[in-house]
């Protein structure tokens, strides 16, 4: 089931090509005399991780969170704030950042998941904006100017993130790990409950599933994976700012998921790639690139059912 197990299908080939491209970019980019693309792809992979995490709740669980970027910010800011206070040990920073993202998701999710539909969208947005304004208001940590990180996370000499290739492959490994994790989770018993709840929550209750606790757990897992993306972003850019979790970022994440194909394992990666490469390319042509980009996204949503994944052929059942 799913793309990981069936590499000879169009989806498998597509996923292999994209992941292969990511894997060999540090070799490819200098060969093509475009070393800048290493950083571009590192950024794309970070957004892909965030999109994969959003897809877990949005695509598989039907929870349209319009505040998902706030976990990106929380993960990033924990790293930034600890570095600011001189704690650069990654073995302390990373678990704490994941814990903070998970805790925030637990608190926000516990409240948001009592609502449905538009209310859910609005309340996730409200919580994210709350964190956004919090980050702006704290002057000690740079308020809207953001916070520069002097040193990337240190792992006692085991992994040197200051090496461009090393941090690139750490990000690559995190992306592949997130994909594998989501693949296992959505096909497990837990994942079936989350999907069933998206499909027909009333029926889930009738057959005996108390879905709230599973949806909440799923929300927390997604928040933590997105927190990981934030950790990586803080390390890559050596900078965090409130802009990481401003609401358009959450909107862009939703777009990446929809563009790639909701509820498909690899769709969000493809979505992030196409979204960011296209935005990058278009902005090279004209300052007013949004005029082309906006209608393009609308056309994709209107006419390409199932996003990029939908272009790779029909799916029978809700698959992995």
């Amino acid at each position: 089931m799913g793309e990981l197990a069936s590499l000879r299908t169009p989806r498998g080939i597509f996923a292999t090509v994209i992941l292969g491209l990511c894997a060999f970019m540090p070799v490819l980019a200098p060969a093509l005399d475009e070393p800048f693309y290493i950083t571009v792809f590192a950024r794309i992979m970070i957004w892909a991780i965030a999109a994969v995490s959003l897809n877990l709740i949005l695509g598989y669980g039907g929870m349209v969170s319009f505040g998902h970027a706030c976990y990106l910010g929380i993960g990033g800011y924990v790293v930034g704030i600890m570095a600011f206070h001189g704690v650069t040990n990654g073995f302390i920073q990373w678990p704490l950042a994941l814990l903070a993202s998970g805790l925030a998701a637990l608190v926000f999710g516990a409240i948001c998941l009592r609502t449905r539909g538009v209310y859910f969208i609005m309340i996730t947005l409200a919580f994210a904006q709350m964190i956004y304004y919090l980050s702006i208001s704290v002057e000690k940590y740079g308020s809207d100017d953001g916070l520069t990180i002097d040193f990337r996370s240190e792992f006692g000499g085991l992994i040197d993130l200051e090496e461009r290739t090393v941090i690139y492959y750490v990000i690559f490994f995190c992306l592949v790990g997130s994909l594998y994790l989501v693949h296992r989770v959505v096909n497990s018993r837990f994942g079936m409950v989350v999907r069933g709840s998206k499909s027909n929550d009333a029926r889930m209750h009738a057959i005996g599933h108390p879905t709230y606790r599973y949806r909440l757990a799923c929300f927390v897992i997604a928040g933590m994976i997105c927190g990981l993306a934030g950790i990586l972003q803080a390390n890559l850019e050596k900078f965090v700012s409130p802009d990481m979790m401003y609401w358009p970022r959450s909107g862009e994440l939703i777009f990446m998921v929809v563009l790639g194909g909701m509820g498909t394992l690899f769709g969000p990666v493809a979505g992030a790639l196409v979204f960011l490469l296209l935005a990058d390319t278009l902005s090279g042509f004209t300052e007013h690139w949004h005029i082309i980009f906006g209608p393009f996204l609308i056309l994709v949503v209107l006419f390409v059912h199932g996003g990029i994944d939908g272009l790779l052929g029909r799916r029978e059942a809700a698959g992995g």
């Binding site: 018993r189 079936m192 599973y214």
Partner: peptide
């Protein structure tokens, strides 16, 4: 799958994250 979800609801909790449910 529909029916298996009903079976699953009565086979302990569903905080089982790893093994594929469709091959159980």
């Amino acid at each position: 799958d529909n029916t298996a979800l009903a079976v699953q609801a009565h086979d302990g909790h569903s905080f089982r994250f790893w093994r594929p449910a469709r091959r159980d």
